[in-house]
């Protein structure tokens, strides 16, 4: 944790490539024990944000990760932060057993027995090189290695990109059941919102280098209301300025931000909007 009790504090985080702003004055906090979904379309600035957290790229503004400026001391940061990017980053020539031996010697918080126990549950031949393993196995290997490291922050950048649905589901099940202990914080970037919706505690929507939504999942139901508006109330409902409107079986599905709940209940059935609908609503408006 840093001085403000957060795992991550970002203030005015910016990154410019010539005239293009990959990040434009981004502010957010990550609290201990939270699982944050960093969600945005391709090119929104997700990877740049995560790379800034990890000290893999330069940036402007203030960023404090576990009390460390990632630009200055990546080595000590990486003792407490782990990182999985999409499947293609394990070196192709590395053997599974070499990967275990390497991290065992390099990382003070690596638990070799735990890694071996996790790997025994998979079908990964320990003498095989990464290039001989299937995509799914490479992900299993990487996840097993990372799960055996006791860290304060786990960063996942599109961790299941290019995997089929079985492996994707297994990945998140494992992460939640075997790993998450409410002390480690996790930040996951993805554009497949539906898959991680159920495991998140916080949402960060990012678009064109700006944060467009920053909310706890528990607060969503208070802040946003989805109404299945009956045809006769459409005019009235539209007058209240929904942030999102969609036709649905003759009715209109509308999302309101900080609307008057009792008034909205009069228009039709009320729900908590799905993250996917909320995402589309926010992206359209920004």
């Amino acid at each position: 944790m840093n001085e403000s009790g957060n795992v991550v504090t970002a203030r005015g985080l910016s990154k410019h490539f010539g005239d293009f702003s990959a990040l434009d004055g981004v502010n957010f906090d990550i609290r201990p024990g939270s699982i944050v979904g960093l969600i945005g379309p391709n090119g929104a600035g997700k990877t740049t944000t995560l790379k800034s957290l990890l000290g893999l790229t330069g940036f402007d503004g203030d960023l404090d990760v576990l009390g460390v400026d990632p630009r200055k001391d990546r080595k000590s940061l990486m003792q407490r932060v782990c990182f999985i990017s999409d499947v293609g980053v394990l070196p192709r020539w590395l053997r599974a057993r070499e990967a275990v031996a390497y991290i065992d010697a390099i990382h003070p918080r690596f638990n070799r027995e735990k890694a071996m126990a996790l790997l025994e549950k998979t079908n990964i031949p320990m003498n095989n090189r990464v290039k001989q393993l299937s995509k799914g196995m490479v992900t299993q290997l990487h996840l097993a290695l990372v799960m055996a490291i006791e860290v304060d922050l786990l960063v996942l950048d599109e961790p299941t990109l290019g995997l089929d649905i079985l492996y994707r589901k297994e990945f998140y099940d494992r992460l939640l059941n075997d790993y998450f202990d409410h002390q480690t914080s996790i930040i996951i970037s993805t554009h497949q919102v539906e898959e991680i919706e159920s495991i998140l505690t916080h949402l960060l929507f990012i678009n064109k280098g700006k944060i467009v939504l920053d909310a706890a999942m528990d607060d969503l139901s208070e802040q946003y209301v989805e109404v299945l508006v009956k045809p006769e109330h459409v005019e009235q409902a539209l007058a209240l300025g929904p942030i999102y409107t969609r036709d649905m079986l003759g009715k209109k599905n509308m999302i309101f931000e900080r609307g008057d709940r009792t008034q909205l209940e009069g228009f039709g059935e009320i729900n908590v909007p799905s993250v996917a609908d909320l995402f589309v609503a926010k992206m359209q408006r920004s």
């Binding site: 990890l54 000290g55 893999l56 990546r74 080595k75 000590s76 940061l77 990486m78 003792q79 782990c82 990182f83 999985i84 990017s85 293609g88 980053v89 394990l90 070196p91 192709r92 991290i103 390099i106 990382h107 003070p108």
Partner: peptide
């Protein structure tokens, strides 16, 4: 390792440059 992106793996471990 920059070309095959494995730098992202090496740099995720606590080894100084």
């Amino acid at each position: 390792d920059r070309k095959d992106r494995s730098i992202l793996f090496w740099k995720s471990l606590p080894v100084s440059d």
